[in-house]
């Protein structure tokens, strides 16, 4: 990672995270690293380190956090939340950070595609004759898509 200039830091970033639903706990972290020890993703991919993400956010490294690819590696398994002695609820903090990243137009392509599918079909997989034939063979009634209200509510 390149050197970070102090002037580029955003001291208000931690407050923005804390004001999002789920982000409230971030300032309680005392850096014990229990979250990192419990994280199954960190165990297989060192790019993702919960404690490091919290420290970066508290230091105000906004663009480094929101523009990174590692924040999207969280599997939201809640392993970190279970072991945290400070009740930071890091899984929820990650939801808050990712919502902020999306607001800054940093979204992995997979999620953009999912959103488009949801808008069009109201579900993650399109229902066609093929699917309903497959269902009929299993003795199941056909299903229909219900995209009504969905696009409007999805925003």
């Amino acid at each position: 990672m390149s050197r970070t200039k102090l002037n580029d830091l955003d001291p208000d970033f931690k407050n923005r995270v804390a004001s999002q639903p789920g982000g409230e706990g971030i300032k309680a972290c005392f850096a014990c690293k229990a979250c990192t020890a419990a994280c199954p993703v960190e165990a297989v991919d060192k790019r993702y380190d919960p404690r490091k993400i919290i420290r970066m956010a508290l230091l105000g490294m906004k663009s480094e956090v929101l523009g990174s690819d590692f924040i999207w590696l969280c599997s939201s398994c809640y392993g970190c939340s279970e072991v945290c002695p400070q009740n930071v609820r890091f899984t929820e903090v990650m939801f808050a950070i990712k919502n902020l990243a999306v607001a800054e137009a940093c979204v992995p392509p997979g999620l953009t595609v999912q959103k488009e599918l949801l808008k069009r079909h109201g579900r993650l997989y399109e229902v066609t004759e093929f699917e309903n034939d497959k269902r009929a063979k299993q003795g199941l009634p056909p299903i229909t898509e219900h995209p009504e209200d969905y696009a409007a509510l999805l925003g």
């Binding site: 990712k98 919502n99 999306v102 993650l124 219900h146 969905y150 999805l154 925003g155």
Partner: peptide
């Protein structure tokens, strides 16, 4: 006539209110 829940691993990350 339900539609997608939506999943905690996708839409919750994109837009909490939606």
């Amino acid at each position: 006539p339900f539609s997608c829940c939506p999943p905690p691993t996708s839409m919750k990350l994109v837009h909490y209110d939606s």
